[in-house]
């Protein structure tokens, strides 16, 4: 069981994430969009969307800091575990609360605003359950396991396990010992990762990081190799060639 959950599942999730993204990029660039509903309703969105997104960005940054950076590294720069813990607890709680509050508002808006609700697909609903579940569990883990029940140093268990998965020497025993709430949070996160490219979440990978560096005015040649075009076939080649 441990092997299945903590060795097989992460690799399946990574495969789905990478494969799905490649598939989406190759075959469904037209569907790759934020599918914004701002045209229908923008008053609530104005508050909820930045709250959620910025909260989530800090949540993700926190995950990177917590999972990717080993404990030795922070200690090497003389940051004691207690100090790290305090920062992660406070910052994590704030970011998590912002993301959860933003998401709650977004879901409320989605449910109560008629046009927005009718533009919601089943795929969206599943995604909201998974995303909301992981966020709530994550916030719960931070507040309950790390805060109320006293400090829990996930950097001795979850962190090494996470890094080992990428180093191709996964160790399920590390995960067998962690609190139940943590287990659920990680599992839900893995499922979300697997489904990520098949939901609207994929728009995160369209983040326009090149925008600040490109010129304002863009010329393209009609015969150019845009993503949707191809080289003109030469006269004698069958027109069905793809």
């Amino acid at each position: 069981m441990n092997l299945l959950l903590w060795v097989a599942l992460p690799y399946v999730a990574i495969a789905c994430l990478v494969g799905g993204t490649v598939w989406r990029y190759r075959y469904d660039r037209f569907g790759w969009t934020t599918r914004s509903s701002e045209l229908y309703e923008k008053r609530l969105l104005r508050i909820a969307s930045p709250l959620f997104h910025f909260g989530l960005i800090f949540v993700i940054l926190g995950h990177i800091a917590g999972l990717v950076v080993p404990e030795d590294w922070t200690e090497a720069v003389h940051v004691p575990e207690s100090a790290y813990h305090a920062v992660s607890l406070v910052a994590g709680s704030i970011a998590g609360a912002a993301a959860v509050a933003g998401l709650a508002l977004l879901v409320y808006r989605r449910r109560t605003s008629g046009p927005v609700f009718s533009a919601t697909t089943r795929n969206d609903k599943l995604m909201y359950v998974l995303l909301g579940g992981s966020l709530l569990l994550g916030l719960g883990v931070t507040v309950i396991e790390n805060g109320i029940r006293g400090p829990y140093d996930y950097r001795e268990t979850v962190g090494p396990w996470f890094r080992d998965v990428f180093l191709l020497r996964p160790d399920p025993d590390l995960m067998a010992r962690i609190p139940l709430l943590y287990k659920f949070h990680v599992l839900l996160g893995l499922v979300l990762t697997a489904l990520f490219p098949f939901t609207r979440l994929i728009h995160a990978f369209a983040a326009p990081w090149r925008y600040p560096f490109r010129p304002y005015i863009v010329y393209r040649s009609r015969g150019g190799r845009g993503p949707a075009t191809r080289d003109p076939a030469r006269g004698w080649e069958p027109v069905t060639r793809r």
Partner: peptide, 10 residues
């Protein structure tokens, strides 16, 4: 508008 490139940022 390149419909494959647009990501719906509005």
């Amino acid at each position: 508008v390149d419909q494959d490139g647009c990501r719906g940022w509005r």
